[in-house]
């Protein structure tokens, strides 16, 4: 009877493939780490060497820290130093290990109506955007990029608001898609920008100011608060991410001939 055959096929499809015995850990990471392709360059190698699979939850830094505080992930890779410090002070994590940095870039319409490209500092660049009333897309999601953006406005003494300032509350990719569609400016990390495929009329207009420096740090979740976290696997990862192997891989990771991340961890001897 056909019905029975179908039922069997359905059941087979529904039956869970047995979970493998290998160690699996969860890391909340920022979009830039995953979307740039760096994760693909690092994690398979880590797995080869240690047998540990790292499952990535790709979220903004704010949400990553919340997940860590709740104990839903084992470790966090984020780029929001102030929030990270507060998080550590609450006792949610054990340490903050700087791994690498990259930088933020200001992208916008190729014809650059606010003349951002001609600015000499990042602060001057965003002041020009605000004064021209040119459309600006903000992440608005408490991510590391959003926090960095707010820091820029704050430093420039501007409280961004008005029809030109569009906070979308979404990830970097969505912000870039929106900026491309609206011909707006936005702040992006360099990695996501280089990997982004739907640029349309967008171009990289400003970069290189130290104020756009973007530090990534690894934050293990405190096993005293959450005994279920795989502290041992996290320690292996921390050790590995600060090793020379990781340094070679991170510094060697290029996109369109550009080095995306700069390893700056204290290498374990």
């Amino acid at each position: 009877m056909r019905l029975r055959t179908l039922a069997l096929v359905l059941l087979a499809a529904c039956a869970a493939p047995a979970a493998s015995a290998e160690t699996v850990m969860r890391m909340a990471v920022t979009t830039s780490f995953a979307n740039s392709g760096l994760a693909e360059a690092l994690l398979p190698r880590f797995r080869e060497e240690t047998g540990i699979t790292v499952q990535l939850l790709i979220v903004g830094s704010g949400q990553a820290l919340t997940m860590g505080a709740a104990g839903d992930v084992d470790v966090i890779l984020s780029h929001d130093p102030q929030a990270e410090a507060a998080w550590l002070a609450e006792g949610y994590g054990t340490e903050r290990r700087e791994i690498m940095y990259n930088d933020f870039v200001i992208v916008g319409p190729r014809d650059d109506p606010a003349d951002v490209a001609g600015a000499s500092t990042a602060s001057q660049a965003i002041v020009r955007i605000a004064e021209a009333g040119a459309l600006f897309v903000s992440r608005g999601d408490e991510s590391g990029t959003h926090v960095a953006e707010r820091r820029l406005w704050h430093a420039a003494g501007i409280e961004p608001s008005g029809a030109w300032y569009r906070a979308i509350g979404q990830g970097m990719g969505a912000a870039l898609n929106t900026a491309a569609a609206m011909e707006a400016y936005t702040l992006s990390d360099r990695g996501t920008w280089l990997a982004f495929e739907n640029r349309r009329g967008l171009a990289l207009l400003f970069s290189g100011d130290p104020a756009l420096f973007n530090q990534y740090a690894l934050l293990p979740v405190n096993p005293e608060r959450h005994p279920h976290v795989r502290a041992e696997a996290v320690a292996r990862l921390a050790e590995w991410l600060t090793s020379q192997t990781a340094q070679t891989l991170i510094d060697g990771f290029h996109r369109d001939g550009v080095q995306l991340f700069h390893f700056n961890a204290h290498v374990a001897q």
């Binding site: 979307n35 499952q55 990535l56 939850l57 790709i58 990719g173 870039l176 898609n177 495929e197 739907n198």
Partner: peptide, 24 residues
């Protein structure tokens, strides 16, 4: 699910991810 590659990624969340990458 968290859209974890090789663990909880399904068609719809993969679509959301690819859209985020601008890979329409």
């Amino acid at each position: 699910g968290g859209n974890i590659d090789h663990a909880t990624r399904v068609l719809t969340t993969a679509i959301a991810l690819e859209t985020g990458k601008g890979a329409f």
